[in-house]
Amino acid sequence: MFTATELNIRNQKIERRVKLLFLLMTILLVIPVILILGVLVYEGGPLISVDFLLTDPKDGMTAGGIFPALVGTIWLVIVALLVSVPIGVAAALYLSEYARDNWLTRVINLAIINLAGVPSIVHALFGVGAFVLFFGFGTSILAASLTLAVMTLPVVIVSTREALQAVPQAFREACWNMGATRWQTIRHVVLPNSVSGILTGVILEVSRTAGETAPIMFTGAAFFLPFLPQTVLDQTMAMSLHLFVVSTQVPGVPEQLPFSVALVLIAIVLTMNSISIAFRIYLRGKKKW
């Protein structure tokens, strides 16, 4: 009575094939990641040492370390965060907690999506026009970081909004019904419960900011500087541009050097991501619903 019919058997076959296909696609996705990491570690790993991280490049960048680029990237990321996080979080709070669904909100949403879709080289040219020339910051950390901030704002806004929307509506209703204002609700209930999600977005932004080359090329990152930046109005070296330079622009670079630079850059990004995951797990554990 309960034996499989022919139709059942055919469906099972299709089921197995579909499952296999999807599995293969998933594996295909992992292969580049493993290959990239593998090649980088294999080629670039031997060159990496504390000295490599903490000394200046030497001999026309064909030897020595990457210290100024490392420091420069940290500068760029921090200044970009200082600009984009407050703006992005505030905008997300407005859009998710205050704005009503009307044409203006829809236009703003569309603008954010479009901003996310603008190629980074276009952001770079915008940065040159706006920050370097119009505001007169010159090619500097400030101009480069502002350009990066504009570019990553959509990431912050979208991820913050998602985090805010994950807070159950019932909490807000409870607050409003007790006579709390929207700000009191945000301050005491919404933000404490969405902070992990917001931080995740911020750290995603860090990885992206650290890796971008085009937006900083014309706005603040230098080919080679024998000294470290002192203020935000100085130029700086940066990891991503340094990688581009040693890979393509300088003759006589040892073959392993670009791999090592790339490995450090990826290590920074992966470390950031791991911190974000650890942090999220920690904050999730503290969540009370």
């Binding site: 909490f171 607050c175 005491h188």
Partner: peptide
């Protein structure tokens, strides 16, 4: 409300929330 919706705070903080707000 239909579904109890205590805030994700302590019992004490829940009681004091409205009071502090006002």
């Amino acid at each position: 409300f239909q579904r109890p919706n205590p805030l994700p705070l302590s019992i004490r903080e829940n009681i004091l929330f409205g009071f502090r707000t006002h």
